[in-house]
Design a protein around this nucleic acid. Structure first.
Length: 865
RNA sequence: GCGCGCUUAGCUCAGUGGUAGAGCGGCAGCUUUACACGCUGUUGGUCGGGGGUUCAAAUCCCUCAGCGCGCACCA
């Protein structure tokens, strides 16, 4: 047996298994075993591991590893996505340091640079996932820009175009002035902004000296105003409808229109209409045939149409200038603080600019079917409440802007020649006469195919649809909903059966983790300090079911401590001789403690199975922790030491075998959660040569002798409870835990004698003797236990009064409990209405309390001696 | 505005009708022959407020408050 170190040192152990596992998790598409599959939510290729990834992928690893141990053929398919905007931004930033832009390089050269960057830096997160212990099939790692994958994306585009789901149109879109591209609605986040409401006056054209006062948050767009609108029902302004007023600069006459959408209560009740720079204004403009005047450049600066003063000015600088100019003209009235919501580009974190532009849009396919798939339970969301969020989005679904003004991504497979449009997987025959669309597709337009576009035909046949998806609720629309529609449209089947939504990991103050706040710990640092297993376990245990998580490093520390506890418990067992490769309880004479721990193990196995069925991962971790630390280490091992250190070979062997039995089960139960340390110990014990990754996951309970079980468990519980009381007595009388004490039991049950040695060991007694005729001096500390009346005679300590007072306190507590039970039992409505079992239980409690009181009274009377 | 979630011990959280729990922290004691990343004992709660249903409510219903999230959005 190899030497085993005193404290668990994860680094070497984890590195060892990472190397050995490299090829163990390949999925065999030809396997006769039932399939189980998960596709990883592909992290950005630019990304590095975050705590969110750790949680998410730990959960997937748990599912995959357990499925493997349940005899499934498991595919956990890993990969990354090309993250169009993020990746292109990273490379452009590098170019800028060389003083170049992507246009200086040209499309071909720029893309070569991006690929080079990807080859050099893109694998980081994959390596980090390996460090975490993820049991992915690395031979099937995919990237959304892989050749085969790209072909799928293109095919899907062409197919949807042919089916009439994809169209091109000039519409208002969310424009990101930093990334210089359109975004989908889902990539815009609304943020409350402390802005101002500016009041200004437009002169009525046919009535000089008469003004309409207008309130706006964006005075810098006034140069694009092509109308002014009021509510026709608004008596203050009805007479102006059909007339004109002056836009101050560039000075022009613009029509005043009546539109019922105008809220007379808001501001002044007069709206300036800027159809090119506001979604609502665009619609008003369209209704009244107003001109669309685009005064902005793509980068958010103003253009020549805004006038010479504004041309080239950044939009927020232009705001100040516009106010200044209005004031100079005497047209500025006042401003007031105003908090409102502004759409921000999620990636670039700058206010988006509503902008009119020609883009490609997708009319979603299979909306009704996708809605029904979740509503009807074909796909089950956990926690279930997310189905409502899904339904809401699906029933208010808007067309998806799928084109992006980027170079890095799947180029839109459409070619133009004059008025002609050609869409095809391959370029048109006489390609040189055609011009291909310059834009690429939204990254999500490739990700939504992930569950099947990542699989070759044989893999797909075996593993699609997948079983579980584990992801964050923040991408329920961006990704989950779209995958469901894509699966239904292109494979005629839902892509996964279950979706588990994790919570968000927040810092100790409850704030989101973010780079700018610097409050997101580096998981690799945590792995270095606490081990991957410790990190996994610690995080899992604080990840309440679908609830946000408050991260605290203490929890990871606890994970490490638990690993260490496991290590040392194993070490203790190994000090006492070799273990059988397949420990079994069959034919063993079991002590009450062994019966108890085996029964608890059975409960654990059952509970674990139920927790898995309900995706209650925290409960899995918690129950393993509780069983192992408390039931096994604190109680069983301590109790079993009596047999292990005694010279009865049969009893000793029995106890050691029970330990082996429990350990061989706990290692398997724990393996999905803490794969490295369990695999290491499994090997050290020599439990099964094939390794732990494919060892059978415990499902069946051990068969225990029913005729003895109940009584044995009762006895074990009585000994443990009595030990607690005895320890308490020691502490109260300041007998240091290292000092041996003497205990005397009186009027004990007949079985107690046999358990005396164990009892004595648990309370660190010099001796625990049974003396039926013991007459305790009045001041001897005493307590009523389930093993009988227990006395702790102490040299020189005789304070009968104190002892009596202690007992009195105990009696008062019991009396209170008795009174509470009796109050219920005496209520006729309770007896009439409560179920018989509940009444019975209350009666039992009444009897117990009565007996206890009686004995306590007797003991109290004896303090007079 | 609509929808969802949360509120239980100092902290982080379990606990979906029947005697309020865990870990951490605090306090006290311990190098008890696996583990100080440990052991033992102990201190902490009118379960956010109010109302209701019920023999019985942390748990079910209503309502209010605070915090958080999603969707929509009036310039």
């Amino acid at each position: 047996m190899p030497e085993i170190s005193k404290a668990y040192e994860p680094a070497a152990v984890e590195a060892k298994w990472r190397a050995r596992w490299e090829d163990v998790f390949r999925a065999d598409a030809a396997s006769p075993k039932p399939a189980y599959s998960i596709v990883i939510p592909p992290p950005n290729v630019t990304g590095v591991l975050t705590l969110g990834h750790v949680l998410n992928n730990t959960l997937q690893d748990i599912l995959a590893r357990r499925a493997r141990m349940l005899g499934k053929e498991v595919l956990w398919l890993p990969g990354t996505d090309h993250a169009g905007i993020a990746t292109q931004t990273v490379v452009e930033r590098r170019l800028r340091k060389e003083g170049k832009t992507r246009r200086d390089l040209g499309r071909g050269e720029f893309l070569r640079r991006v690929w080079a960057w990807k080859e050099e830096h893109g694998g980081i997160i994959v390596e980090q996932l390996k460090k975490l212990g993820c049991s992915c099939d690395w031979s099937r790692e995919r990237f959304t820009m892989d050749e085969a994958y790209s072909r799928s994306v293109t095919e899907v585009f062409v197919e949807l175009y042919k089916r009439g789901h994809i169209y091109r149109g000039k519409r208002m879109v969310n424009w990101c002035p930093a990334s210089l591209t359109a975004l989908s609605d889902e990539e815009v986040i609304m943020k409350p902004v402390h802005g101002k409401l500016y009041y200004m006056r437009y002169e009525v054209a046919d009535a000089p000296g008469e003004f309409l006062e207008i309130a706006t948050t964006r005075p810098e767009t006034l140069m694009g105003d092509t109308g002014v609108a009021v509510n026709p029902a608004d008596e203050r302004y009805a007479r102006y409808i059909g007339r004109e007023c002056w836009r101050p600069f560039p000075r022009a006459r613009i029509p005043i229109v009546g539109d019922p959408k105008i809220d007379p209560e808001f501001g002044t009740g007069v709206l300036k209409v800027t159809p090119a720079h506001d979604k609502a204004d665009f619609e008003i403009g369209a209704r009244h045939g107003l001109e669309t005047l685009d005064i902005m450049n793509p980068d958010g600066t103003l253009n020549a149409l805004a006038g010479p003063d504004f041309e080239g000015k950044e939009r927020f600088a232009a705001r100040a200038l516009a106010v200044e100019k209005l004031a100079a003209l005497g047209l500025f009235t006042r401003e007031e603080p105003y908090e409102h919501n502004v759409g921000y580009s999620e990636r670039a974190d700058v206010p988006i600019e509503p902008r009119l532009s020609e883009q490609w849009f997708l009319r979603y396919p299979k909306v009704a079917e996708a809605l029904e798939a979740v509503r009807g339970g074909a796909i089950r969301f956990t926690p279930e409440r997310w189905t409502k969020v899904y339904e809401h989005w699906m029933t208010n679904i808007q067309d998806w802007c799928i084109s992006r003004q980027l170079w890095w991504g799947h180029r839109i497979p459409v070619w133009y020649r004059g008025e002609e449009i050609y869409a095809g997987v391959a370029p048109p025959p006489d390609a040189e006469t055609w011009r291909q669309d310059e834009d690429v597709l939204d990254t999500w337009f490739s990700s939504w195919l992930w569950p099947f576009a990542t699989m070759d035909a044989a893999t797909e046949k075996k593993f699609y649809p997948t079983d579980d998806l584990v992801t964050g609720p923040d991408i329920i629309f961006l990704w989950v909903a779209r995958m469901i529609m894509a699966g239904l449209e292109f494979r005629g089947e839902i892509p996964f059966a279950k979706v588990f939504f994790t919570g968000l990991i927040r810092d100790a103050q409850g704030r989101k983790m973010s780079k700018s706040l610097g409050n997101s710990p580096d998981p690799l640092d945590l792995i270095a300090r606490f081990g991957a297993d410790g990190l996994r376990f610690g995080l899992l245990r604080i990840a309440p079911h679908g609830q946000d998580i408050r991260y605290d490093e203490k929890q990871v520390e606890e994970g490490r401590n638990f690993a260490n506890k496991l290590w040392n418990a194993a070490r203790f067992r190994q000090m006492h001789g070799p273990s059988a490769p397949e420990p079994s309880l069959e034919g063993l004479e079991l002590s009450p403690y062994s019966m108890e721990v085996a029964a608890r193990l059975n409960e654990l196995i059952r509970g674990t199975e139920e927790a898995y069925a309900g995706s209650r991962f925290t409960e899995i971790a918690q129950s393993l922790y509780d069983f192992f630390w408390s039931d096994y280490c604190d109680w069983y091992v301590e109790a079993a030491k009596t047999e292990i250190f005694a010279d009865n070979p049969a009893a000793r062997n029995s106890a050691l075998t029970v330990m082996d039995f429990v350990l061989s089960h706990i290692l398997r139960l724990l393996h999905p959660v803490m794969p490295h340390i369990t695999e290491e110990l499994w090997e050290t014990f020599g439990f099964a040569p094939a390794g732990l990754t494919h060892a059978p996951f415990p499902t069946a309970a051990a068969a225990l002798d029913r005729s003895r079980l109940e009584e044995a468990r009762r006895q074990a519980a009585a000994v443990y409870q009595s030990a607690r009381q005895a320890r308490n007595l020691r502490a109260e009388y300041r007998v240091p835990s290292n000092r041996k004490a003497r205990f005397i039991l009186r009027s004990q049950p007949e079985w107690a004698e046999r358990e005396l040695a164990t009892f004595a060991r648990l309370i660190n007694a010099e001796e625990a003797a049974i003396q039926p005729l013991y007459e305790a001096p009045g001041g001897v500390p005493r307590v009523l236990t389930e093993m009988g009346e227990l006395y702790m005679p102490l040299e020189g300590l005789v304070d009968a009064g104190a002892e009596k007072a202690r007992l009195k306190k105990e009696m008062e507590k019991t009396q209170a409990e008795l009174a509470a039970v009796r109050r219920k039992l005496q209520s006729s409505s309770f007896v009439a209405n409560a179920p018989a079992a509940v009444i019975e239980e209350h009666r039992k409690r009444e009897t117990t309390f009565l007996q206890r009181l009686e004995q306590l009274e007797k003991m109290s009377a004896e303090t007079a001696r």
